[in-house]
């Protein structure tokens, strides 16, 4: 797979912009400063995804996923270690929540948080690229990273772009990851668009 450093750099900046907006919205909701880290963007085989250290940190994860299709397809997700999701909801709603006690209403609340973050990230990408995509509704999933990705793989492809952006909700000590997986079939189209916008060639 030949992806130039410039393309990866461009993808990272697009994601950065989305994460920055998401942080602004999360800050509004939690009233807490969100510390951001430099996002990591890597090209890797789909089958190697579950072995990514940053993803498997914690056997039980909670995620709000958003699938997208169109000129490029893939999945964006907000990913928390198990306990963090409950801490976050407790902070957002002012409830006292036992660890792991997520009922329909609380899951929906977490869905909204994921919706805000995912939409911000996707919005920034589609904005810059001027593309229209079709999205699924946000979906809450729990389990290992393999459980969460589930049958999301839509095509016969080997390579994906993995973008991980870690953030910390400072007062709550909640660490989350924004994770994007672009299918490789879509990757050429994405890089093409980036090239067109930035004047670089993929």
């Amino acid at each position: 797979m030949n992806v130039t450093g410039e393309s990866v750099d461009a993808i990272r900046e697009l994601i950065n912009i989305g994460v920055g907006r998401a942080a602004g919205l999360l800050n509004d909701m939690t009233g807490t400063h969100i510390r951001l880290e430099v996002p990591e963007v890597r090209v890797l085989r789909y089958t190697d995804l579950p072995r990514e250290d940053r993803l498997v940190d914690g056997s039980r994860l909670s995620a709000v996923t958003l699938m997208f299709r169109g000129p490029f397809s893939g999945m964006s997700m907000l990913l928390f270690p198990d306990k963090s999701a409950a801490v976050l909801i407790a902070a957002l709603t002012g409830e006292k929540i036992e660890e792991g006690d997520l009922d329909a209403l609380r899951i929906e609340t977490l869905n909204e948080v994921g919706n805000i973050v995912n939409n911000a990230v996707m919005g920034s990408i589609t904005n810059v690229l001027g593309e229209r995509l079709v999205y699924s509704m946000p979906e809450f999933r729990e389990g290992s990273i393999t459980d969460i990705m589930g049958e999301s793989r839509s095509g016969a492809y080997d390579w994906v772009i993995l973008a991980v952006s870690q953030f910390t909700i400072e007062d709550l000590w909640v660490v989350g990851n924004i994770l994007m997986i672009f299918e490789i079939g879509a990757l050429d189209r994405l890089l093409e668009k980036i090239g067109a916008v930035t004047g670089t060639s993929p």
Binding site: E13, G18, G20, A23, G24, N27
Partner: peptide, 9 residues
């Protein structure tokens, strides 16, 4: 010049 739109930032 940042993508971080938080007022706190």
């Amino acid at each position: 010049f940042t993508s971080d739109i938080q007022k706190s930032t």
